[in-house]
Amino acid sequence: MPDDLQDNPKSIIRHYVEMGVLALLLVVFLAVSLWRQDPLHQKDAAATMKAIGLILAAGLTLTMYSFLYRDNPLFKIAENLYVGVALGYMAMFVWRQALRPMVYEPIFHAPTWSALQTALLHKTVPIIVGFMLLTRLSRKHGWISRYAYALMIGWAAGLAIPNITNTYILKQLYAAVTPLQQAITSAPNTPAFSYDWFVGTAGPVVGTLVILIGTVSVLFYFFFSVEHKKVGRAVSTVGIWFLMVSFGASFGYTVMGRLSLLIGRVQFLLDEWLKIPST
C-alpha cells in the first residue's frame, strides 16, 4: 500500500476497492482469454505460442490503458517489462546492425590477413574512441569520454550549417518569394467580384499576402534584441495570433489521425484477441 494512504481511512477503503476490482478484471480477462484463444488445445507448439502471445499482447494493451484511470500494480509490471524488452531489443539491434558487422566480424572473422589489415586500418580509431566513451563509467577518468562527444558533436555541427542553410533557409525563402507572382500570372480570367474571382484570383493573392504578413510578424516576434513596444508590440501581437491559429490548425489536423490509432488497437482486441470479425 502506498505510504501516503496510511492516515486516510477513505483512501484506504478506495485503495482496497480498486485492488479488488483490478483482481476481478484480471480473472475475467484470463477467463475470456482461455475461452477465446484456448492455448491449451492448439494443434502444435507454434499455434500455442501464438495464442499465448495474443493473450499477453491483449493483456498488455488493456493494462496500458488502465493507466488512464490510475497507476496500478499491473501497469507497473507492464511498464517495467516493456522497458526491459525494449532495452534488450535495442541492445541486440545495435549488436546486429552496427557492432557485429562493423567491428566483430571484420576483425575477429577476417577471412584473410589482408582483410584484417584493411579492417584495422578503418576501424581502429572509432573503436578506440568507442572505448574512450566507456570511460564515462569511471568518476576519475570520465573526462576521457569527452573526446567521443567532441568527435560526434563536431561532425554534427559542421554538417548542420550547410544542411540547415539548404532546408531551413534557402528552401523556405525561395518558396516564400514566388507565390504572389504565381497567384497573379496563373489567375483565371473571371469577371471581377464574382464568386470564381474571389476563389480563383482574390483568394490566392490575399492568401499569399497573409503568408507574407504572418512570416514577417512571426520572425519579428522572435527578435531578441528589440523590446516589444509600440509598433513592435503590435507586430509581435499579430505574430502571436498567427502562431496560435497555426498551432490550433496543426492540433485539429492531427486529431483524426490519433483517433485512428485508437481504433487500430480496439480492432486488434476485437479481431485477434476476442476473434470477433469487425465486418
Binding site: I169, V177, L212, V216, F220, V226
Partner: peptide
C-alpha cells in the same frame, strides 16, 4: 537578429521583385 532582419528584407524585396 541581424540575420533575421536580412531575411525579412530579402523576403519583402523578393516578393516585390518577382
Amino acid at each position: 537578429d541581424v540575420g533575421k532582419a536580412f531575411i525579412m528584407i530579402v523576403l519583402v524585396l523578393g516578393i516585390i521583385l518577382f
